[in-house]
Write a protein that binds this DNA or RNA. Structure first.
Lengths: 143, 143
DNA sequence: AAAAACCCTGTAGTGACTTCAGAGTCAATA
DNA sequence: TATTGACTCTGAAGTCACTACAGGGTTTTT
């Protein structure tokens, strides 16, 4: 199976496959006479596994650890649990801040409809005022 | 005001301040005799504005546009509204995918408590199975 | 025979910083 | 006075996970 076929089979871009090889996430495959990469089903499975983990937004370093567990089936399962827990914690932190962000932005958006000049824009006023509030209240030294 | 003081006043790292200057988000300040950057209150306000926009996760390019509106108060306000709408749309897309992610991960996490080997781990089984399902069903050409 | 499609390597670019190396400047201390 | 420590400077490189490109070779199709 050539790289283009692997790309078709997994939906992973050719450049990305080569990148994963360079980064050591998939082993370097055998080459045909003309130097083309020649993949087998093990590569396909491993690449799909990687993409599934990436779809869970795991960093490549964590995926490497997961691949280590796949390769060592007698390792302790607790480490896998911890890894997923860490990932879940990261996702929840980001989720929380995204929710706050959505709220802030939609509130901000409500401060202005169209048809004004920038000088009259409630959005801009809010942003400038918020910036001033922050700069004065939060970080400056004693007066 | 030296760069360290501006850093204190705004909570923005020194290197980040220099980076913003290089990228043209804040104007290059005057220098003292020894070559140190010398900031005024206009810099402080502008930097706070930038950080507030960054806290809304706006890309620097959009923030540049916002700063343009601040500088041209007679511009049309509709552009500001559009900019915020775009940002809000981006945030909502990401929020949706983060929610899905959280769900997937917590479901995955439920497949295993501790105390097994990796071979017996429900999480690993799920991931491997999911990868196989994806590789077979979604992308391969006709059999 | 020529064109299109595929593959190769190696390098650079993305965004928004962060870190580092190597050097100069300034205030306070031994 | 010497020197320590804190601050500042520039410019380059590193981060993450790709993506795009330049410049070439190979295979398949027309």
């Amino acid at each position: 199976m050539r790289i283009g076929e692997l790309c078709q089979a997994t939906g992973v871009g050719i450049e990305t496959i080569r990148y994963y090889e360079k980064e050591g996430l998939i082993p370097a495959p055998a080459r045909t006479d003309n130097g083309y990469r020649n993949y087998g089903s093990a590569h396909l499975e491993r690449l799909s596994f990687i993409r599934h983990c990436r779809a869970l937004d795991m960093p490549l370093a964590e995926i490497k650890r997961m691949l280590g567990f796949v390769a060592h089936p007698d390792a302790d399962c607790g480490d896998i649990n911890r890894l997923i827990d860490e990932q879940l914690a990261r996702v929840r932190v980001r989720l929380k801040s995204m929710r706050a962000l959505e709220k802030q932005l939609s509130q901000l958006r409500a401060h202005c409809g169209a048809g004004h000049t920038a000088a009259e824009c409630g959005i801009l006023h809010e942003l400038v005022a918020a910036a001033q509030g922050e700069a004065c209240a939060c970080h400056t030294k004693a007066p």
